[in-house]
Design a protein around this nucleic acid. Structure first.
Lengths: 165, 165
DNA sequence: TTTGAAATAAATGCTAG
DNA sequence: CTAGCATTTATTTCAAA
């Protein structure tokens, strides 16, 4: 279920000091860094560091910690972006399709965007044939989908993020 | 530095059994789950579980574990996709621009794609004004960039990934 | 490869500055 | 908010199956 603008516990625009930012940068780099190592790196006592990290979690600044996998090693070496354009922008139609796209096997992220397209679906698949099947069976199958356009992804690189400046 | 097809230690298409897949699914969901909890969840001894996880890391199936942050709480509430089209596809030009885009402040991911566009730059910025400045100062500033098109991102949702089926 | 149990290391709770 | 110390919990190691 998506919510499409229902308000949920949004993190207060917390006031983060240098220590917090250093902690965040370290955990983005290595989310399994031990509290001891983290404390040493940012220059505070271990108990203080643990306190800070807990506060950052509870306030929602740290959303979660997740393993990132090598999708090629898992048999999904092909990445693609499927641009999806809708014929109707009825609220229910949009919400329903969004839910469907998120549930597509191999879907990594789904962006609801404004502009030429409505959704950008980033998928990882086993092969080009599977990509075709995926689009036919899980995307264009819905009447609200007017048109799709697929781009092969040659390479994905992580950006520097928002913490560096 | 990007490599653009120079070969690096790619994970062998490892043979993963059900236990491995269960471990991976759990760690994608919660990368800080304790080894004890993980072992209980997948039904093996703690020492076995630790052994498996270490193997999955060393073989490169688990690439890394990272904290995910609430970018809004960090003052970057606006997301956008900047489609970048190049005028020249000279190898050096492509590689250089790729490196530049990855280093853009606020860049989350940069996709090198085939099709209408060459790069898709996903950024998180402080405001629409900053978005404009970012594009002018860090993207269109390069002569190799022929044209950009920017789409506002309303919402980002995680897909089900490749492990569910 | 898997395991249990011992040894090491880390996180948490409590106290107080 | 911070730090030190004691307690509880987790990870690593290793001999054995």
């Amino acid at each position: 279920m998506s919510e499409l603008s229902s308000k949920k516990p949004q993190a207060a625009p917390a006031s983060l000091d240098g220590t917090d930012l250093a902690i965040l940068a370290a955990l983005v780099e290595d989310g399994r860094m031990t509290n001891a190592a983290l404390a040493a790196r940012v220059g505070v006592a271990e108990s203080t560091c643990a306190y800070r990290v807990r506060a950052l979690r509870q306030s929602g600044v740290i959303v979660s910690v997740n393993a990132r996998l090598n999708l090629g090693a898992l048999g999904h070496p092909i990445h693609a972006i499927v641009k999806v354009r809708l014929g109707s922008h009825n609220r229910e139609h949009v919400r329903n399709l969004y839910d469907k796209l998120v549930a597509v096997p191999g879907a990594l992220t789904v962006l609801h965007v404004g502009g030429d397209d409505d959704f950008l679906l980033h998928v990882a698949v086993e092969s080009p044939e599977k990509l075709r099947d995926l689009i036919l069976e899980h995307v264009t199958i819905y009447p609200v989908v007017q048109r799709t356009e697929t781009q092969l992804v040659f390479e994905v690189r992580e950006g520097r993020g928002v913490l560096s400046p």
